[in-house]
Design a protein around this nucleic acid. Structure first.
Length: 841
RNA sequence: GCGAGAGUGGCGGAACUGGCAGACGCGCCGGCCUUAGGAGCCGGUGGGGCAACUCGUGCGGGUUCGAGUCCCGCCUCUCGCACCA
């Protein structure tokens, strides 16, 4: 034993012992329920940062807690080791990603171990390992068969100077990150997942998940289902041509006074000759503007051009003008809208600018008088009435409420064969081709003979994996020209699986979101060379019980992850609908200045430094104590010191008590102070258990501090009291174990519970249970109120009957003056808590 | 604009299904110990008032014996989406 708490001398020792005993291995407790706790897959930068430390602190507390509860806990770890950062670093520094990546992993892994994170390293995976990514290729081929993977043309960012395609991250303010040239748009073929096929399944699945509302809302919004009507507006004097629109407000169709189409709408070719030049110029202008503004930028003012075309409103039979407008998106719905300026803000803004007619057809009430006034006010204020209401000036539909009219008008359109109900989604298919080197090769070859149109011939499954070739970094990873793999002639040139003749491999690689879409399942069976994972393993451990990671993954990763799970079920690999039942999105860690930690701000605090100075237990306690898991937290050196001091006090508390524990007896006979200590300890067991179940780590730690404070300064009077103190300290240490495991192991041993074998380890590992007799209170403090204001407090037996409690409350000296001479109208008694006298006057 | 979340001491934050607001920690104040302490220990700490008491959970209403908690109407902040028809 040492005099002072010195984390450096105890933490590595216990980390070594945990590793030696393999206490963290999953799968050993076949009879027990499983518990799968997972942190989001990290990109292996060379050093763990605070955000990582926070995630792993959370998952590790859960892993250790449930292991102690006797569950078969799976807490695995792996590396998202493919991707752009490694490739960009290679382009800049000329170091091959395959060299850099293992170094980064080793360094990061050291940090994870130094934090005392209890990981089953026998299941470690790295996505850049061919034994991992071969299964990406396997999935690709299966999904190609099912029609979930397909080839399409799509627009990409292209740098004309580097002659290469750029990822969105490589475009800065519309300029190439490398050479600063203006980025162009270009159409190229790419591979895509038909995730839209699962839009409704992904939407419905959200209902059953125990996920933060914020994330659920973002996913719902991202999928963006909207139900409406597609309906044709015939063009006037243009033969049979008609413009199809999508609307969710069919009830307003009698108010459609013009149409608006996207600037590149195909039917604009029917526009009168004299308009063609103007329309072409407009389309070009809008395209250029969109490109320059980039994504997320505020769109300019609404703008349009009268196409000269005229359409007929199929319900009013009136002729209405057709405009090309910048606010209509060619990629959504039919690329054309019926404009109802009276009932749509956007349509009104446009109509106002170009002086198009506004016709109100829905009103808030079916009362003529009210309506006229309301309508006048709307016109005077130049406001659209966008709420549902009652129809007027709408022929046979007048008087109907909007909700009903929507359906009735849709039915009528269907009857007349000019429209049909339609559903639109914001969700787009997931294009996953990347013109990069450091990713999973797409297992496709192109053969001029067997595949003249270059649709792609799948590589046979038994030829997987298609392994990335080794390359000369300086020659291949230039960031310029054709895709990197196309430059590796020894690799790109291959033989056709069909004819055996010369063929070329697909030069593109997969988006790294593919890697992270299913890694959680590979952990179950990481060495399987027949399948991504066995059905047996899946049935044992899926789904993930708690998934922890940053809210920045709310849509992309978490949507792909869910999508992939649905595909895996379709393939019969597993029988779950959703990959993770519960999601915890942890808040960000801010620096000393209250700003988000970042290198550029110079406010980064490194976990490595904190562990070096205070030890992992302090780092863990600080991180868990500073804020609830889901909230942002500020870094505070003082609070870190505070946790270090707490651990120091605990150390001295136990070591100071050791001599007093000699000659202890069964605590059952303890009285007075010692009995109170036992009670406090058992109550803390009950409390902390509940707090850990609820992921309330900050209050769990404060409960331990309370117990520690209560036990400080106790002088056991007899043998039973000594036993009581020993019991209370042992419980305190056991409760501490998931949170500050090294300290707990050390003190547990000091308290005479040696941990030399795996079985002894399991003694500490068993989670304590509270003795109900000690948790129950026999004497309680009851608050006494008069007219809802606190006037006194009484101590009384918990079991005292109500009239006794009432009498004692009324007799309390502090309460008496407030009741004197008053008439008591009512007395509210809440057992064990409070008495409230309601008096007159 | 739409969606989600949050407003409680000097600070981070507690408060189970309405029941003693401010647990726990930081900071601060006082004391002890010490050659010394930026170590440790003990005590205090929402505002006002000597006190009895009183005021206090973003603002304004309401329900209730009783509201940080429930209802209605606002304000502010954070995050996400943003011409989605």
């Amino acid at each position: 034993m040492q005099d002072r708490y010195d984390p450096k001398s105890i933490e590595p020792k216990w980390q070594q012992r945990w590793a030696d005993l393999s206490v963290d291995k999953a799968g050993g407790r076949t009879g027990a329920p499983k518990y799968y706790v997972l942190a989001m897959l990290p990109y292996p930068s060379g050093e763990m940062h605070m955000g990582h430390a926070r995630v792993y602190s959370i998952t590790d507390v859960l892993a250790r807690y449930y292991r102690k509860k006797g569950l078969d806990v799976l807490h695995p770890f792996g590396w998202d080791s493919f991707g752009l950062p490694a490739e960009n670093a290679a382009i800049k520094e000329g170091v091959h990603p395959a060299l850099r990546t293992p170094r980064n992993i080793a360094s990061f892994k050291q940090d994870v171990i130094a934090m005392g994170i209890s990981v089953d390293w026998s299941r470690e995976i790295a996505t850049s390992d061919p034994e991992y990514y071969r299964w990406n290729q396997w999935f690709f081929l299966k999904m190609l068969e099912l029609g979930i993977v397909y080839r399409r043309r799509s627009k990409v960012n292209f740098c004309p100077s580097c002659n290469t395609v750029l990822a969105n991250e490589q475009v800065e303010d519309g300029l190439c990150w490398r050479c600063g040239s203006k980025v162009l748009e270009r159409e190229i073929p790419e591979w895509a997942f038909r995730i839209t096929r699962y839009a409704d399944a992904l939407l419905e699945g959200l209902e059953k998940l125990d996920w933060p509302e914020r994330v659920v809302a973002m996913q719902r919004n991202w999928i963006g289902r909207s139900d409406g009507l597609e309906i044709d507006f015939p063009l006037v004097d243009s033969g049979n041509a008609k413009i199809r629109v999508f609307t969710t407000r069919a009830d307003t169709i009698f108010g459609a006074t013009y149409m608006a189409v996207a600037p590149d709408h195909p039917l604009l070719k029917l526009a009168p000759a004299e308009k063609k030049a103007e329309l072409a110029a407009f389309a070009e202008k809008i395209r250029a503007a969109k490109k320059a503004l980039g994504e997320g930028a505020q769109m300019a003012e609404k703008e349009g051009v009268d196409t000269g075309l005229r359409a007929r409103n199929p319900f009013t039979n009136q002729e209405i003008p057709v405009w090309a407008a910048n606010f209509v998106l060619s990629g959504y719905g039919t690329g054309a809208v019926m404009s109802v300026p009276a009932h749509d803000e956007r349509d009104l803004e446009f109509a106002t600018r170009y002086q198009l007619p506004v016709k109100y057809v829905v009103r808030p009430s079916d009362d003529e008088e009210v309506t006229v006034v309301a309508a006048r006010k709307l016109v005077a204020d130049q406001k659209a009435y966008t709420d549902y209401g009652f129809l007027f000036d709408s022929g046979q539909f007048s008087g109907m409420p909007s909700a009903q009219a929507r359906l009735a008008i849709a039915a009528e359109a269907q009857r007349r064969a000019i429209g049909k109900p339609a559903v639109n989604y914001h969700l787009r298919d997931w294009g996953f081709s990347r013109q990069r080197y450091w990713g999973t090769p797409i297992p496709i070859v192109y053969c001029d003979k067997d595949d003249p149109e270059h649709k792609g011939i799948p590589v046979p499954v038994d030829q997987l994996p298609v392994v990335l070739p080794d390359i000369d970094v300086k020659e291949v990873l230039t960031g310029m020209g054709e895709p990197p793999l196309a430059k590796v002639s020894s690799w790109i040139n291959t033989t056709c699986p069909k004819c055996g003749g010369p063929a070329r491999r697909e030069a593109e690689t997969m988006d790294t979101f593919v890697d992270s879409a299913w890694y959680f399942a590979r952990y179950l069976d990481p060495k399987n060379d027949q399948l991504p994972f066995s059905r047996e393993a899946a049935d044992r451990f899926l789904p993930v019980d708690v998934y922890v990671g940053g809210p920045e993954h709310a849509v992309m990763h978490l949507l792909y992850f869910r999508f992939w799970t649905k595909v895996m079920k379709e393939l019969g690999l597993c029988n779950i609908d959703e990959p993770a039942q519960r999601l915890v999105t942890q808040g960000i860690v801010k620096g000393r200045d209250g700003e988000k930690m970042s290198k550029s701000k110079g406010n980064v605090v490194s976990p490595r430094d904190i562990i070096g100075r205070y030890g992992a237990d302090t780092a863990r306690l600080f991180i868990l104590f500073a804020a609830p898991a889901e909230k942002d937290m500020d870094w505070s050196d003082e609070q870190v010191e505070g946790q270090y001091r707490f651990l120091g006090r605990l150390w001295r508390l136990v070591h100071g008590a050791l001599p007093k524990l000699e000659g202890r007896a069964d605590p059952a006979g303890a009285m007075g102070e010692a009995l109170e200590a036992r009670r406090k300890a058992h109550r803390t067991v009950a409390k902390v258990t509940q707090q850990l179940e609820r992921l309330q780590f900050n209050t769990a730690i404060s409960s331990l501090m309370e117990l520690s404070n209560a036990l400080t300064g106790l002088e056991p009077a007899d043998a039973a009291a000594k036993g009581a103190l020993h019991e209370a300290l042992s419980l305190l240490v056991q409760l501490l174990a998931p949170l500050a495991p090294h300290m707990a192991e050390e003190l547990w041993a000091e308290l005479g519970n040696s941990a030399a074998t795996r079985e002894d380890e399991l003694t500490l590992r068993a989670w304590p249970t509270a003795d109900p007799a000690l948790v129950a209170e026999d004497l309680v403090t009851v608050a006494v109120q008069v007219n809802g204001k606190l006037r006194g407090q009484i101590q009384i037996a918990a079991a005292a009957p109500e009239d006794q409690v009432r009498a004692a409350a009324a007799a309390d000296p502090k309460v008496v003056p407030w009741l004197e001479g008053k008439q008591i109208k009512k007395v509210v008694v809440i057992p064990k808590r409070l008495v409230n006298f309601v008096v007159a006057g």
